[in-house]
Computed example of a mutant assay.
Amino acid sequence: MHKGKEQKHGGSVYGRAFIRRESVDAHKRLMHNYFGSPPIFLEIYFRHRFRMSKDLFIHICNSVKQHDRSFEQRRNCTWLLEHSTKEKVTAALRMMAYGVPADYIDDTLVMAESTSIFYVKQFAKTMVEVFGAEYSRAPNAQDTQRLLEMNKARGFPGRAFFPSIFAGEPVDSPPLPATPTVSGDEGILGASA
Rank of each mutant, 00 (worst) to 15 (best):
R21W: 04
E22T: 00
E22G: 03
S23G: 00
V24A: 14
V24C: 11
H27M: 11
H27L: 08
K28D: 13
M31T: 03
H32A: 10
H32S: 10
N33F: 11
Y34V: 01
Y34G: 00
F35S: 09
G36K: 07
G36P: 10
P38N: 12
F41R: 00
L42D: 13
I44Y: 06
I44V: 09
Y45M: 11
F46G: 13
H48R: 14
F50I: 01
R51N: 09
S53R: 05
L56P: 00
H59M: 10
V64I: 14
Q66S: 15
H67G: 01
R69A: 15
R69H: 11
R69C: 04
S70A: 07
S70P: 00
N76H: 08
W79F: 08
L80H: 04
L81R: 12
L81K: 07
S84A: 05
E87N: 06
E87M: 10
E87G: 03
K88S: 02
R94K: 05
A97V: 05
Y98K: 12
G99D: 12
G99W: 00
A102Y: 15
D103T: 15
V110Q: 15
V110M: 00
V110E: 14
A112N: 07
A112L: 06
T115S: 09
S116M: 03
I117N: 15
F118A: 04
Q122C: 10
F123E: 04
V128K: 07
